[in-house]
């Protein structure tokens, strides 16, 4: 709503002049746009919170790949798989800067898939780091939901 500065009539967002008094709405619209942009920026920060969780997963994957290879817990194939996943999360971490919503969707798919697969192959792995797993999933789901809200807001307000 664009509130006319002269008569306080509430006008639709698309209008250029007040329908009640005929005064220009250009200044009100400009102020509204600035407010919208800062609100959108703020909403995007919520989405970018996924970055920390994704970075953490990347670091843990790579660190455990090295430790488990040195202590012979995994073979070369296992190491390549773990490093590949670590690299993928590192890539997603970088992607978060330009497209946090897409990166969060991919991170959730990848994270859930690898842990579900682990759980099926060896059910004893479910409890390993369960708090961390739940934390990562919650952060990613919240980021995706914030990303959808941001997207809806931007579209509604007609911002690029």
């Amino acid at each position: 709503m664009l509130t006319c500065s002269q008569c306080l009539h509430a006008n639709a967002r698309t209008l250029k002049f007040c329908e009640n008094c005929g005064g220009s709405l250009a200044d009100v619209a400009a102020a509204e746009r600035v407010a919208d942009e800062s609100e959108a920026e703020f909403m995007l920060l919520e989405v970018k919170k996924a970055k920390g969780a994704i970075g953490l997963v990347a670091i843990l994957q790579i660190v455990f790949a090295v430790i488990w290879t040195l202590t012979d817990v995994v073979d070369t194939t296992g190491m390549v798989v773990m490093l590949g996943l670590g690299g993928a999360f590192a890539g997603l971490w970088a992607w978060c800067r330009s497209n946090p919503l897409a990166a969060s969707i991919v991170a959730l798919l990848l994270f859930a898939t690898m842990h579900l697969a682990d759980a099926i192959v060896d059910p004893s792995t479910i409890k390993n780091g369960i708090i961390l797993k739940i934390f990562v999933v919650v952060v990613l789901v919240k980021a995706i939901s914030a990303g959808l809200k941001h997207r809806e807001f931007v579209r509604e307000r007609g911002m690029a």
Partner: peptide, 29 residues
Amino acid sequence: RLSAVVEPRAAIIVAAIAFTTLHMAVLSA
């Protein structure tokens, strides 16, 4: 459904990654 929420290029990448991970074969990724 992805192109309804992200740009087409990102939708292509996300769909391709989903397609890859569903095959559960990291070595053929």
